[in-house]
Amino acid sequence: MSNNWPEGVARRVLPEIDSTNAEAARIAPGLSGPCWILALRQTQGRGRRGRDWRDPAGNFAATYVSRPGGPPEQVAQRSFVAALALRDALVTVTARPEGFALKWPNDVLLNGGKLAGILLESVGQGAQVSHLAVGIGVNLLHAPAAEDGALRPVSLLSETGMSVTPEEFLDVLAPAFAHWEGQLVTYGFAPVRQAWMNGAARLGERIIARTVLDSHEGTFEGIDATGALMLRTAQGRRTIPAADVFF
């Protein structure tokens, strides 16, 4: 474990698990504080909207589980915390700030390809979230096959020639996550929002945002004070809280 490991945060490294987010849900009731769960192999990884997340050995699959305070919309802003932490960790291990970009709502890109994804899952009743699982997958060594209409997947190894183990990457990611979590808790969403937009992919360019029911094309103007996508369309500005974005 790194000397920079955040104080009060537990760490579990498992040789194999079905899903780190599923394990987070199982152990959350018994946790006394936040915990990172790292799986060296994940057999049933999943992404947003139930999509499969392929996770060959050597790639990064981990979940940060905690008991955050605040309403669900504020809790959900941890996806931006995770994205910023991922970007900072990747820059640290590669010493190459160029090439990394943040794609709304939950991806990290390298040289225009999808390198990492984030999945938030909550457990709670009513308006309160009792536990939050922030699942993170990074293609450290292997990139899955491309899917029609989606960004090409890339790996850190293929794009930079650098080989990083999951344990090494977690040692860098955990302090970065603690930093941005501290910014959110101490100062609110404003500094997180600004930092995220500073690294946003295709800001000021035309994109397509597809919800379950509709598809909207327009200029990506950033994210609002809640984290929703702001899109300037021919019909005026639209604020979209949840969608898939295509370039």
Rank of each mutant, 00 (worst) to 15 (best):
G99W: 08
L84W: 01
A201E: 12
L102Y: 02
D224H: 05
P68E: 03
H179T: 15
L229C: 05
M1N: 11
I136K: 00
S158V: 03
T160R: 05
G199T: 04
S79D: 01
F246M: 12
L132D: 02
L115I: 06
L86N: 04
T94C: 10
L84C: 01
L84A: 04
G199H: 15
L173D: 00
M197I: 00
I27K: 06
G161K: 09
V134Q: 08
L140A: 07
I136P: 02
S155Y: 12
M197T: 02
V164T: 02
F177V: 06
F189V: 06
L231Y: 11
P105G: 07
T211L: 11
D52C: 02
P153H: 07
G47N: 03
V212N: 13
E181N: 14
P68W: 04
H142A: 04
T239V: 15
V164I: 15
R238P: 00
V93A: 06
A61T: 15
F177Y: 15
W104L: 01
R48N: 09
I37H: 08
M230P: 05
R210T: 09
T43F: 10
H142N: 08
W104Y: 10
G50P: 08
A150D: 08
V93W: 00
W196H: 08
V108N: 02
S158Y: 00
L157Y: 15
L184K: 09
E217M: 08
L132K: 06
A145K: 14
V75Q: 00
Q44I: 00
L14H: 02
L38P: 08
L203I: 09
I240S: 07
L119K: 06
D214W: 12
P15R: 14
F100W: 10
R210V: 11
I37S: 10
V212D: 15
P29L: 09
G113K: 01
W196M: 06
E7T: 14
T186F: 01
N59W: 11
R49I: 03
W36K: 04
E205W: 12
R48M: 07
L31A: 01
L213I: 01
A10F: 12
P97I: 04
P29F: 08
V81I: 13
G124S: 11
R232F: 05
R12M: 08
L151T: 05
G188K: 13
I118V: 14
Y187V: 02
W180E: 02
A62K: 04
L170N: 01
T63Q: 06
A83N: 06
L90R: 01
G33D: 09
P241N: 12
E98W: 12
S32V: 03
A116F: 02
M162A: 14
V192Y: 01
